[in-house]
Amino acid sequence: MHLVVASGKGGTGKTLVSTHLAWLAAGRGLETVYVDADVEAPNGHLFLAPAVEREERHALPLPVLPAGRCVACGACQDFCPYHAILVLPGTVLVFPELCHSCGGCVRVCPSAALSEAPHEDGTLRAGRAGPLRFLDGRLDVGEPRAAPLIREVLRRIPSGVFAVVDAPPGASCATAAALSGADRALLVTEPTPFGLHDLRSALRLCRSAEVPAAVVLNRADLGDDRPLREFLDAERVPLLAAWRYDPDVAAAVARGELAARRVSWLREAAERLLDVCLAPAEVARP
């Protein structure tokens, strides 16, 4: 089962929820992997402190033009919908930050003038935190696209395990990449106008990806949750948990600790949430 923890708005508690669900599931003896797909700001490792067993660089192909064979026909430029390649008299300009590494320009070139060279964009890590397996990706600073690295992180999820995927915030290509292959999504939100606004976007994304979604309300007592509850009722989206604000939880997070190690109500609440997540029929509502 692939459970993706997403949010829309950043800072609502995706990592709090996902690290706890993964840690508790592994503690129950379930073969579990925590997957940090928030490759632009991965922070799950701070709470789980995994022993890293493998680390490797990730690269994407970019077109390059060795001298000689280009006849400046423009076929590559016409093909590229991202304007990543521009044919000029005597040269071809490639804009790496626009290229999506689809390889189309290379294939449509009638002179076989273009080839591809690897461009490194990030690092993949695999390890263990006690019984819990751990995967994450870290995008290099300045790289514009997170989705290819996220897809590569997800490809490393072993088959047959319970995977808890910590998604990037927002509702962009990166979040969509993290949702691909998900059996269900947990959307973590907060009782603020921003939380609700971005939850709507995240919910639309889940629906377009045909991933059933349910909601966890974090810091439930810090704001007015009525607009959120009305929205969820109207949209028939289940609210699986409402966790209150607790300075002890905030302090544990600030120290980089799993808060449930010290805060018993949170541990009980996270165990109940895990029960619901592992009983898929209760959650599913396409």
């Binding site: 430029q77 991202y82 304007h83 990543a84 521009l86 804009f95 626009l98």
Partner: peptide
């Protein structure tokens, strides 16, 4: 035509 493109509007215009 590319004025509203998400990315690469300037390159399209230059082309």
């Amino acid at each position: 035509d590319g004025a509203q493109a998400e990315h690469g509007a300037g390159i399209g215009a230059a082309a």
